[in-house]
């Protein structure tokens, strides 16, 4: 079982976002960058799947700049066998070019199963996994919260509006991982030491330009100041009046 987990380095979810001087990207000063939270589930599921199969390999791959080495090393410390950094050459890729580039690389290596996160919490695109599956002609389930593998077939569960879908399919497959699928492990000291000796290969990205061009990035409009209506149950009357007369929602 050869498994690939796609990972991205993103701004931590508690980052305060400031707009950069170009007006199109964030100002990275003071922002902590981390492994995308949903990709932790992807890496964990890749490791568990290999462990359950008793053989195979887990390769983590990232398209990005040289700084992604840190997150790739983290994944190696979690237990991945190999890391691949596809260098973006400073291009700000969108989901279109990201998937095209990743797919071009995946085609060159053995792959039974590809895990991606549900979404990268910077661009919030939720596209890469399903795009990869289409480009590679693989089956796909997005936002997987529960997964069972049985030889060549899988059963996955995902939440939809007002319910859950149970999806059955066959490998090779691309699955995107959601919270609830597993509890990602922390790298231990032994893992961190071992990671230093594991291979981290660097490649140049295939020449694919993004499909879209960013025109501007802006902070959301400020919300109007709060009206404090008082304390305790005594304030409920004022709230009902405000909801009825000002907000007109009652």
């Amino acid at each position: 079982m050869d498994i690939i987990a796609c990972i991205k380095r993103v701004a931590a979810t508690d980052s305060k976002i400031k707009i950069g001087a170009d007006g199109k990207s964030i100002d990275p000063a003071g922002v902590e960058f981390v492994l995308n939270p949903y990709d932790e589930y992807a890496v964990e599921q890749a490791l568990r799947t290999k462990e359950a199969a008793g053989k195979g390999s887990v390769t983590v791959v990232a398209l990005g700049g040289a700084d992604v080495q840190k997150e790739l090393r983290t994944c190696l410390a979690m237990g991945a066998d190999k890391a691949v950094l596809i260098k973006d050459g400073g291009v700000a890729h969108d989901a279109y070019s990201t998937a095209e580039i990743l797919a071009a690389w995946i085609k060159t290596v053995p792959h039974d199963l590809v895990f991606c996160g549900r979404q990268a919490v910077d661009g919030d695109n939720s596209q890469t996994g399903a795009r990869l599956a289409t480009l590679l002609g693989m089956s796909c389930v997005t936002d997987v919260e529960k997964l069972a593998l049985d030889g060549n077939t899988f059963t996955a569960e995902r939440a939809i509006e007002g319910g859950r879908e149970v999806v059955k399919g066959t490998l090779p497959a691309v699955l995107t991982t959601d919270k609830g699928l597993n509890e990602p492990r922390y790298p231990n000291l032994k893992g961190i030491m071992a990671a230093k000796k594991k291979p981290l290969e660097e490649l140049a990205a295939a020449a694919v330009a993004p499909a879209s061009k960013v025109a501007s990035l802006a902070l959301p409009p400020e919300r109007p100041p709060v009206k404090m209506l008082g304390e305790g149950a005594a304030a409920v009357g004022a709230l009902i009046a405000a909801l009825r007369n000002e907000a007109k929602v009652l």
Partner: peptide, 20 residues
């Protein structure tokens, strides 16, 4: 054609134009 979408979970809004 272009679109504005929230990024960073709504902590910023990105406007882009499609080239394909």
């Amino acid at each position: 054609f272009g679109a504005t979408k929230p990024v960073f979970a709504g902590k910023a809004y990105q406007k882009s134009y499609m080239e394909r």
